[in-house]
């Protein structure tokens, strides 16, 4: 027993050596502030005066007496549930198309990536207003079909959907990751399948999709963590208001408002830790499920 442990620890040495930079960063830069925010979540902290311990009061208020918490949860869940599947589907589809050996594809790859490069640039806010305001381009197009559209971006029923569209429009990152994943699928597998006379859909479902699952899984997790914390689209497009009528009040935007506009950092920290637990639960569930559908080292 002791010998076995000794051997395992000896083997561990190399692992921890490689892990060293990360461990230094974790203990030196990440852990302290994270614990500090956990502590702050049990205090009333207005940024300037010393934090005052209030026990679980912040959490109680979140659970029982905060309509904005519920509103922002609703918005965030809708956003996560709609934007991720659509964005990943679009990214995968285009990655498949762009992975062919056709001339000129690098150009398209770059072009399709362009919207993502815009990131959170302020120009996005103006562009989106040009497209989705009452007198915007989208409604001008709809008018050709005799449809009079609403002002999508400033209507509480539709404003969130313009942000979902924005997220899908910027599908470049998952697309590139899918492309890199597709590149790692051995070509000889396809050749073998070709020799067997497998049809295109069959090749997709029995080779591409299974071998791509680690990448799909990665994209899913990362996009989910990202979408739950989505901040900049709403911050830019609604200029930080989360309006109209809180219809784009993303959870992270609400945290930001509480922390920096309303000087309720303790409360904001409590909100943040609830979000962390939520994301962690979803991630853990995804990892558990991954045993059944993700294939490593096929």
């Amino acid at each position: 027993m002791a010998v076995q442990w000794k051997r395992r620890l000896a083997r561990s040495k190399a692992g921890y050596l490689f892990l060293l930079p990360w461990l230094v960063g974790f203990f030196g830069l990440t852990l302290g502030p994270a614990l500090a925010s956990l502590y702050l979540s049990f205090t009333r902290f207005d940024l300037f005066r010393a934090p005052k311990w209030v026990g679980a009061a912040n959490y109680v208020r979140i659970a029982t007496d905060d309509p904005n918490f519920m509103a922002s949860m609703r918005v965030t869940f809708l956003y996560v549930a709609c934007s991720i599947p659509l964005k990943l589907a679009v990214a995968l589809a285009l990655a498949m198309v762009l992975n062919r050996g056709i001339r000129g594809l690098p150009i398209y790859r770059a072009l399709f990536y362009l919207p993502s490069l815009l990131g959170a640039s302020v120009a996005v806010a103006i562009l989106w207003r040009q497209l989705f305001a009452g007198d915007g381009l989208v409604n001008a197009l709809l008018a050709n079909f005799g449809i009079q559209g609403p002002s999508w971006i400033s209507n509480p029923h539709y404003a969130l959907w313009t942000l979902v569209l924005l997220s899908i429009w910027q599908f470049g990152s998952p697309m590139v990751i899918f492309l890199a994943g597709l590149r790692q699928i051995p070509a000889d597998l396809y050749e073998a399948a070709n020799l067997d006379g497998a049809s295109r859909p069959r090749r997709f479902f029995s080779i591409t999709l299974p071998l791509l699952t680690p990448v799909i899984f990665f994209n899913f997790i990362v996009q989910m963590i990202d979408a739950f914390q989505s901040f900049t689209p709403a911050f830019i497009v609604s200029r930080g208001t989360g309006g109209p009528v809180n219809s784009t009040l993303f959870y992270a935007l609400y945290i930001y408002q509480e922390a920096f506009s309303h000087f309720q950092m303790g409360y904001a920290a409590a909100l943040a830790w609830i979000l962390l637990l939520l994301i962690a639960a979803f991630t853990a569930f995804s990892f558990l499920s991954s045993r059944f559908w993700v294939y490593y080292d096929a």
Partner: peptide, 14 residues
């Protein structure tokens, strides 16, 4: 109306 007003974010430009 509300839908038009909501385009205004309180800055000069909007």
């Amino acid at each position: 109306p509300a839908e038009v007003e909501a385009l205004d974010h309180g800055e000069v430009d909007s």
